[in-house]
């Protein structure tokens, strides 16, 4: 029930995040030149997860939220990571 304060990020910070996101997008395209074999989906997901986390942290102000909200979002990420890992382990072991 706590109410976190109101935060305004500077234009420089937002610009930095934007550049980071564009760079990561370029990275996710560039790494398709390499064959990671069974790990290729995992690598693509890793880059996507970093991008998602950046958006959540800065654009959606998660950085300034209460600990419980951070835990909830972290828990959701963990849950989806586990679901994806379990599914792909089935492919590896089949």
């Amino acid at each position: 029930m706590e109410k976190p304060g109101h935060h305004i990020l500077s234009y420089n910070s937002l610009l930095g995040v934007l550049v980071a996101l564009l760079s990561l997008t370029a990275l996710s395209v560039w790494i398709t030149n390499f064959n990671f074999g069974t790990l290729s989906v995992g690598v693509a997901l890793l880059v996507a997860a970093i991008k998602g986390a950046t958006v959540l942290t800065y654009f959606m102000h998660l950085k300034f939220e209460s600990r419980i909200l951070k835990l909830m979002v972290g828990g959701v990420f963990l849950l989806f990571a586990l679901v994806i890992i379990i599914t792909f382990i089935d492919y590896l072991l089949r």
Partner: peptide
């Protein structure tokens, strides 16, 4: 969240997945 595979025991998933 982690029991969905029990609908797929006869579908051809791996032995370890079935066990899990």
């Amino acid at each position: 969240y982690f029991v969905w595979g029990h609908h797929m025991f006869t579908s051809g998933i791996s032995y370890w997945s079935r066990w899990f």
